[in-house]
Design a protein around this nucleic acid. Structure first.
Lengths: 211, 211
DNA sequence: TATACGGAGGAACATTTGTTCGTGTCAAGC
DNA sequence: GCTTGACACGAACAAATGTTCCTCCGTATA
C-alpha cells in the first residue's frame, strides 16, 4: 500500500483535494498542470499504476473518468429534509410537499443509517427534554419514516389524542389497549386505549451533535 | 420554481440519476442520448434555462462542468473510521494509524454534525447499556475527537484508573477532584480524584440507527 | 393577419481531453 | 560494462465534448 512514488502520492492527493473543491474529477491535464509534470503521458503512466494498486478506478475514453476508491460518494449518503420540530406539547408537522422543499435545511446521513431510504423520510429537531425516556435529548435530530400504521415492537412517534401530546415509544398493541414502552429499559411503560393513539411515523435514526 | 418545460424537468432528473450512478457529471451528449434529443444545441439551450432558473451551475468550456445546486456533495459530508468498540469494562481502542485504515468501516456524517472535522475524529460502536445515563444506547455509534485534555463542561470519554472502567460524562475539574456529570439531568454525578481520570477523547456526535 | 417568442433541429466548428509511440535517464543487480 | 525496470519526456493523433449559427414550428398576442 505504501509502495508509491512521491509523484504518485502527490497525484492521489491532488485528486482528493480537487474533488473536494469541485463536483467533477480532474482531467489528466489538470493533474499535469498542478503538479508541473512535463507530459500527459507521465500522468497517464502514473494513473495506471494507481489503478493497478487499486487506489483509483478509471473509465477509459471518458473525460474526467477518474474515481477514487473508497471515497465518500453521494451514493452512500442521502439528504433528509428537516421539516420542523418535535416536542411533547406539539403535533408533528406534516411532511406535506417534501419534494418542493428545495430551500429547506437538510441533514446528511450515511446509507447505513437510513435503510431503504426513499422519499418518505423526514427529519425533526427535538425541542425540550420530554423524550429523555427514549434516550433522546433536547437538540437531537430524529429521522422518521412517514407511516400511519406499524408493527408491534417498532419505535414510533405517536400523538396521544386525549393528552394532546407527542411521544416517541416502542409500540405494542395488546388487545384493546396499547403499551408504549420507553427505550430506556429502566422506565415504566404507558398503557392507553388503542383509539387514543395516532401514529405519525416510525423512528429510523437519531442524530446528536454534542456541544 | 415550477415553470420548467417537460423536457427541462426530464433533463434535471436525468442529471440527478446520472450523478447517483457515476462519480462524474454527464456530458451534454449523455443527456442528449438518454432523452432522445435530436441536437446538442437543444440540450445546451435547456441547460441555459436551468442555469438561469438556478437549478444547476455550469462551468463553461469544461467537460462535464455541470453541478447540481443544493445537492449532497462530498464537501458537506465526511467519512469517519469506526475503529472499534466502546464498553464500560474496556479501554478505548487507540486511534493509532487512522490514515492507513483504508479497509476500515466508516460512518458518513454531514459536516454540521462534525464541526471542525479533521483527521482527529474516530468512531466507536457502543456495546452494552452502561452509557444509558449519557443517553447512549447499545449499538449506537459515537464519534470522538482524540484529545487528552478538555475544558470544563465538555463531554468526554474517560478511563477511570481505579475502577478500570470507561465512561462518557461531562467533565468538571473542581479543585483536586473531578465531577463527572451524566447527560441525563435526572441522574447523579460521580466524584473522583483528578488523577484517577484519564481523558480519552471528546464526544462530538452520537448516531443511532433504530431497528 | 402579422409579430414575437419559447422551443426544437441540424450541422459545422473549436477545444478539451484521453491515448499512444518512440525515446531518454538513472539506479540496482548481474 | 551490460541489462533490466521504474519513471519521465514530447509530440502527434483521435475522440469526446462544448459552442454557435441558421432555420423552422407552433402558439399566444397585438
Amino acid at each position: 500500500m505504501k509502495d508509491l512514488s512521491r509523484r504518485q502520492r502527490a497525484i492521489l492527493q491532488f485528486i482528493e483535494s480537487f474533488l473536494d473543491q469541485n463536483d467533477y474529477p480532474p482531467t489528466i491535464r489538470d493533474i499535469q498542470r498542478d503538479l508541473d509534470i512535463s507530459s500527459t503521458s507521465v500522468v497517464d503512466y502514473n494513473l495506471k499504476v494507481l489503478e493497478n494498486r487499486n487506489h483509483i478506478r478509471r473509465n477509459r475514453n471518458i473525460s474526467r473518468g477518474i474515481e477514487l476508491v473508497g471515497r465518500v460518494n453521494h451514493r452512500n449518503v442521502i439528504a433528509i429534509p428537516v421539516i420542523g420540530q418535535i416536542a411533547a406539547g406539539l403535533p408533528i408537522p406534516v411532511p406535506g410537499d417534501l419534494e418542493q422543499a428545495d430551500s429547506a435545511e437538510t441533514v446528511e446521513v450515511g446509507a447505513d443509517f437510513a435503510p431503504n431510504a426513499g422519499r418518505d423520510l423526514f427529519a425533526l429537531r427535538v425541542k425540550g427534554h420530554s423524550m429523555i425516556d427514549a434516550l433522546i435529548n433536547d437538540g437531537d435530530v430524529v429521522v422518521l419514516r412517514q407511516q400511519v400504521t406499524c408493527e408491534n415492537g417498532e419505535t414510533v412517534a405517536v400523538w396521544l389524542r386525549d393528552e394532546k401530546e407527542t411521544t416517541l415509544k416502542r409500540f405494542y398493541l395488546e388487545g384493546e389497549r396499547v403499551r408504549l414502552q420507553p427505550a430506556n429499559m429502566t422506565m415504566e411503560p404507558i398503557f392507553t386505549p388503542a383509539n387514543n393513539v395516532e401514529i405519525q411515523g416510525r423512528l429510523v435514526t437519531v442524530l446528536r451533535s454534542v456541544v
